[in-house]
Design a protein around this nucleic acid. Structure first.
Length: 260
DNA sequence: CGTTATGTTTCACT
DNA sequence: CAGTGAAACATAAC
């Protein structure tokens, strides 16, 4: 389920479990998850330690004591899992590192859309992958600049990783619900006030989600995540939530509440 | 069996 | 260049 808040919880999890331990082995059950030959990862990881982590959007960077930075992307179904015994090995841990202390760092990825890579420079990686600043730290002026000249649906813009890195499908729906903005509103038709409203909603959704460890059940009652399904009841209007496609992605919204 | 799923990349068009 | 829609990638769950 990894969008920005989920990956932030993964970061915290890794920071509190897997840092500062010598890596002794690597295994990978499906090489398609590796963007480089496994031997490259082994060369740069074995004998090294995780030193610190950084997150930009949905990408997690793990700095090591070696010269390369490990880059993780979780795809649609991924999470890290730190465990000790083989019995507790997660079923879909397709990539596993073993530490000197006997624990393992498993990369769970049921659908195999996630991957690992190595980079020499996080800054370079960010440019190559056209990532904006992380949505959590993004400045209003940069957001406005990124919208300049764009004419498409606000939802597509929000999910554009070069505009606000980290916003994915559920967050875009939640942000637009909070901002009372219709998902297919064209950005060139939006007033400055409306753009600022969406920006503020984005910030709020991010902080609320992180505060609650991306645990949707703990989100405030007026958050769309509680009724983000077709035919469910909108908290504010009591009307039915509708399902449409925007930019090829399933989109849930409340027609009366979210104005075009 | 068919549909759907929280992501990214690529490609053929307009 | 901006934008679109579709396809591809893999697989489990409903």
């Amino acid at each position: 389920m990894p969008e920005l808040p989920e990956v932030e919880t993964y970061k915290t999890y890794i920071d509190s479990t897997a840092l500062h331990q010598r890596i002794t082995a690597m295994e990978c059950g499906d090489k398609r998850l590796l963007k480089q030959p496994q031997s490259d990862f082994e060369t740069h990881l074995i004998g090294q330690e995780f030193k610190a982590t950084q997150r930009i959007g949905k990408y997690l960077f793990i700095e090591t004591t070696g010269e390369k930075v490990l880059v993780l992307h979780f795809g649609m179904t991924g999470r890290p899992h730190y465990y000790k015994t083989e019995e507790s090995r997660p079923k879909y841990a397709h990539i596993v590192l073993t530490f000197e202390n006997g624990f393992h760092f498993g990369f769970e990825n049921k659908r195999k859309f996630g991957w690992w890579n190595l980079t020499s420079s996080i800054a370079e990686f960010k440019v190559e992958h056209k990532l904006s600043d992380d949505a959590r730290n993004l400045k209003l002026d940069d957001f406005k600049n990124a919208l300049e000249g764009r004419k498409t649906d606000i939802k597509k813009i929000l999910m554009d990783q070069s505009v606000a890195a980290g916003v994915g499908n559920w967050m875009a729906d939640e942000i637009l619900y909070q901002a009372q903005m219709h998902p297919t509103k064209k950005v060139n038709d939006m007033t400055t006030e409306a753009i600022e409203r969406v920006f503020e909603a984005m910030k709020k959704v991010i902080e609320v989600a992180i505060e609650n460890d991306a645990h949707y059940a703990d989100f405030p009652d007026h958050f769309l995540m509680h009724f983000r399904k077709e035919g469910a009841t909108c908290f504010h209007t009591g009307a039915k939530i509708e399902k449409i496609k925007v930019g090829g992605r399933t989109t849930y919204f409340s027609p009366e509440w979210q104005k075009l």
